[in-house]
Design a binder for these strands. Sequence first.
DNA 1: CTATTTGCAAACCCTTTGCAAAAAT
DNA 2: ATTTTTGCAAAGGGTTTGCAAATAG
Lengths: 136, 136
Amino acid sequence: MKQYLELLKERNLKATPQRLSVLKTLGEHMHPTMEELYEKIKEDHPSVSLATVYKNVNTLKEEGLIAEINTPGSKTRYDIFCHPHIHLVCAACGDIQDFPCDIGFEAYQHDIEAKAGKEIKRIDVVATVESCKKCS
Amino acid sequence: MKQYLELLKERNLKATPQRLSVLKTLGEHMHPTMEELYEKIKEDHPSVSLATVYKNVNTLKEEGLIAEINTPGSKTRYDIFCHPHIHLVCAACGDIQDFPCDIGFEAYQHDIEAKAGKEIKRIDVVATVESCKKCS
DNA sequence: CTATTTGCAAACCCTTTGCAAAAAT
DNA sequence: ATTTTTGCAAAGGGTTTGCAAATAG
């Protein structure tokens, strides 16, 4: 909680309860869709509007505090941005699991960077499985 | 052209001029957005409707003949599906470059598969650079 | 006190759908 | 002849916008 206040202050963003709730919810619940995020936030702030959640998500995205996960086929999901990791998404239920990027991958990323001649700002890896333990 | 007819026949899809044009256009132009794809197809088929392009894109996606590229921030783009490759996307102009998946990556994929305990059906790797040669 | 943020409703994409006519096999 | 596909227009869903009132710093 304290940490979130600091993250916002560093970026000159006002720490409104709604905005803090976006960060807190993303910290507690993995990869919600916008709808899920909105419902969770409403539990603490019943009068929050969907537009406000969208605005905050966009602001926090621009500041690099949260990330959007685009999965082929299913809905966009949101994630607190910590260190890069792979998203393992289930095609059947849309559930997402995180997957650490251990060695191997950094090396691969450097390789792409060298060949591209540009610094890679961000890398999104989405692996899709047909079904997962949760839904089958 | 001949190849496309066969690909459709194998899947019992009717070879309409509009559908062939989707494949042909994706074969000739790299990664168009839906709008670009539609404009290109209209050059050959002025009376084609956007809905038809969407329907064909969906059908061909389901059959695994084409793939959708979801890039964080910019518009969805479409690609003929050949072998997997990495998409290097420019955050400034949305342009996409292909990047081969040489060794290294397959190994990495097997590693994820082993840890997930599930077969990976598809893997999407999108690397984002801030600007590219085309737009700067 | 000033600048930002909120909530509401309307506007705005992009994408899908229903249906009758047209085309493919 | 049968089944799929087309084109149109309307509907749908998710996201953004404009603005006045509320809130943070």
